[in-house]
Amino acid sequence: MRRRVKKRFRDGAPPVLTVLLFLLVWEAGVRLTGIERWLLPAPSGIAASFADSWELIQRHTWPTLQEAVLGFLLGIGVALLLAVLIQLSAWLRRGIYPLLIGSQTVPIIAVAPLLILWFGYGLLPKVLIVALVTFFPVVVSTVDGLSSADPDMVRLLRSMGAKEWQVFRMVRFPHALPSFFSGMKIAATYGVLGAVIAEWLGASEGLGVFLIRSQNSFAADRVFVAITVITFWSLVLFGLVCLAARWAAPWAYLRKEDSWKGEEKR
């Protein structure tokens, strides 16, 4: 236990220290050079602005989070479905994969106006845009995981007379879990960002709107506040995915040294 705390400290101290140092240098730099507040506010100024606009921020955060989480979940659902289809049929693999890659080369900025034309300015087009940016890394990594299952394990199961769906459930699926979650980690970092970009293209509330308004009124401090909030929630989403991964596939995080129960007794 004690060792764990120590390890936490050892792993956690460097990033915390570097961030603190960075803020300190920033603060000092702004004060010494006397740079204009609307160009580059000092961290203390940003903090003050954070406190001032607290309620405003909350009002704008909620819709963005909603879009991000819903879009993320939708993206993952679609990704899982596609991954399974691609794994099950070589025909679909050849049919879907190029389309998938293609979908990623189309810039979101170009698709978004279409979605807004079709679905209006509500929640739906934003959720779709987030889904569009998050599903791709999940599909690719899940397909990778599903198809890289140990063929010897598959053979063992077959020798027991297992059916194809049992092989899928007992070997391919659990084997793919860690890759699925790595895809999800990448997707999690895109989620909030995707929602913000979607809001730029047409919305009445959300962090994206808050950003644009801050920019229009030359409130650089508020832009930084928005950046901080976006980063914070992206990290929270990322952390949640990490927790889910540990919960769903604890075995993937085992290392012998961690709790090695000593050499064999006999």
């Binding site: 010897d152 063992l156 020798s159 007379g161 007992m170 084997h175 879990l177 596939a249 993937a252």
Partner: peptide, 15 residues
């Protein structure tokens, strides 16, 4: 499905 087969590799499922 007719035999108990123990492959040369242990093939234990890590999960």
């Amino acid at each position: 499905g007719h035999v108990s087969y123990m492959p040369q590799k242990d093939c234990l499922f890590p999960w």
